[in-house]
Design a protein around this nucleic acid. Sequence first.
DNA 1: AAGAACAACAACCGCAGCACA
DNA 2: ATGTGCTGCGGTTGTTGTTCT
Length: 279
Amino acid sequence: MGKGRAPCCDKTKVKRGPWSQDEDLKLISFIHKSGHENWRSLPKQAGLLRCGKSCRLRWINYLRPDVKRGNFSAEEEETIIKLHQSFGNKWSKIASKLPGRTDNEIKNVWHTHLKKRLSSDTTNLNADEAASKDSLNEAETSQESSPNASMSFAGSNISSREEDDAQISQAFEHIQTYSDFTGMLQEVDKPELQEIPFDLDHDIWSFIDGSDSFQQLENSWSSRATQESEGDEIEKWFKHLESELGLEENDNQQHEQGTTDGEESSSSSLLEGYKLLIH
DNA sequence: AAGAACAACAACCGCAGCACA
DNA sequence: ATGTGCTGCGGTTGTTGTTCT
């Protein structure tokens, strides 16, 4: 201390850009073994030529086992819109209300889908309003038109602050339901989400990222991994991860074709790689 | 079929806040 | 009480994939 603030990392000595499968594997296996108490020193300890920030981001947004991947459901989108109304661009706060979704993912969805949808909805509504105003003037109706701007979200219209608040409350109730039933997160209309069996792997996920600390993990993972049942669970989890990372197909293809490329084969199976790393 | 335009998303950067010495 | 280091957050950029002309 006292020598000035050290830079986050030496940019000339760290790798940047997309993560390779080998890097993912190293990060996963290191965190499994030792946890992530210190992101700054983690890359060095894990043998990664990456900035600690980059490792953290990769883990949180992509590799963490409880990250829910796949398209956002209409309900989730609606929830994001409502939460954004009350929280603004506090993505982490919004993310905390949506189990399995990361702030980065929500931010992306907002910028790519929801913002546009809202603006087009608003435009449509303005046109509708103008049209309805004319008709209202003509009919000289006694009904009061709302002074607040109206917004439409996926079939629901919010035309007053009170209704707005009520809808936010409803959203929270909905979120609570989500939280209560994380084991049933599979969406009926989103079959791709069923690739993540929350219920089946609940133990291993809480084991990895839940109430059990990584300090406990540090002591238990290696020894537990040798036990057959735990080994099965680890294997299962790695299979899911491979499927998430799209490695399953490669793996199969290589099995069919007969692997010749050493580099590819070294990363074709996360589980095999993991086994090599921990032994 | 090829190139351009657009969309989606992963990753980076800089700042703020917190914890600790 | 103060300064430093670390983490987390939000804004932004870069890359890749898809659709359109």
